[in-house]
Amino acid sequence: MAPDFTVKGSNGKPLTLSQYRGKLVLLEFGYTSCVDVCPVSLAMLAQARKQLGAQADQLQVIYVTVDPERDTEERMRNYLRAFDPTFIGATGTPQQMAKVRQDYGITATKKPIEGSKDYIVGHSSYLYFVDSAGKLRALLPYGRTADDVVHDVKLLLKN
């Protein structure tokens, strides 16, 4: 079973992974201040959802922050809306989010930006597929295409 968690959702409600049983869930880990990997991955997921057509209703993308200090519910909602209005962000206390990262094997390290009080977060980037029964079924590394995601989603929706 995929490790369950309860955190804050970008929709202003508590978000529990298990509340999405019956749907295929794609978990993506990242943060809203990311300028490289995260926007590319979210754009790819939005494209995959479009390619799925009517089947997209059976899919829920959850974007789990690795930067809970900056990623508030509102900030995540506004950020994700630019990619796809159905995407939901997951945030919480630093301790809650550290537990979720640990459960999924995600590393995240703050790296100060020289000459600034700001920072970036170096983090591992995988896409986790959780089936409608709550089982972790697949893992894709960063850099896969929307076609790859659509292929895997269609296979998992058949089972």
Rank of each mutant, 00 (worst) to 15 (best):
A2W: 09
P3F: 09
D4S: 02
D4I: 03
T6C: 03
V7Y: 05
V7D: 00
G9P: 02
G9C: 01
S10V: 01
S10T: 01
N11D: 08
G12C: 06
P14Q: 03
L15W: 07
L15S: 06
L15G: 06
T16D: 00
L17V: 07
S18V: 08
Q19M: 12
R21L: 07
G22A: 06
K23T: 13
K23L: 01
L24S: 01
V25F: 03
L26E: 00
L26S: 05
E28W: 08
Y31K: 12
T32K: 03
S33E: 12
C34V: 06
D36G: 02
C38R: 01
P39E: 00
P39N: 05
P39G: 00
V40Y: 10
L42I: 03
A43E: 09
A43R: 09
A43C: 10
M44D: 04
M44C: 11
L45Y: 07
A46N: 04
R49V: 09
K50R: 14
Q51G: 15
Q51V: 04
L52P: 03
G53H: 05
G53W: 00
Q55G: 07
Q55H: 11
Q55M: 12
D57C: 14
D57G: 15
Q58W: 00
Q60C: 04
V61E: 05
V61A: 09
Y63A: 15
Y63M: 14
V64I: 04
T65E: 05
V66G: 06
D67G: 02
D67K: 09
R70T: 08
R70G: 04
D71V: 00
E73D: 10
E73R: 11
R75L: 13
R77G: 15
Y79F: 13
D84H: 03
P85M: 10
P85K: 14
P85I: 09
T86A: 12
T86I: 10
I88D: 05
G89A: 02
G92P: 02
P94K: 04
Q95T: 10
Q95W: 08
Q96L: 09
M97N: 06
M97C: 07
M97I: 12
K99W: 07
K99V: 15
V100K: 08
R101V: 09
D103H: 10
D103L: 11
Y104M: 07
G105C: 02
T109V: 11
T109L: 14
K110M: 13
K110L: 15
K110Y: 13
I113Y: 10
E114Q: 15
G115H: 11
S116G: 07
K117M: 13
K117R: 13
D118R: 11
Y119H: 02
I120F: 14
I120H: 12
I120S: 08
V121Q: 09
G122S: 14
H123N: 06
H123C: 00
S124Y: 02
L127C: 02
Y128N: 02
V130H: 02
V130M: 04
V130E: 05
S132K: 15
G134N: 03
K135T: 08
K135E: 09
L136Q: 08
R137N: 08
A138W: 09
L139E: 08
L139Y: 06
L140G: 06
L140Y: 14
P141C: 05
Y142F: 13
Y142N: 11
Y142W: 10
A146H: 07
D147Y: 13
D147L: 11
D147P: 00
D148A: 07
V149T: 03
V150Q: 01
V150W: 01
D152C: 09
V153K: 04
V153E: 05
L155E: 15
K158D: 10
N159S: 14
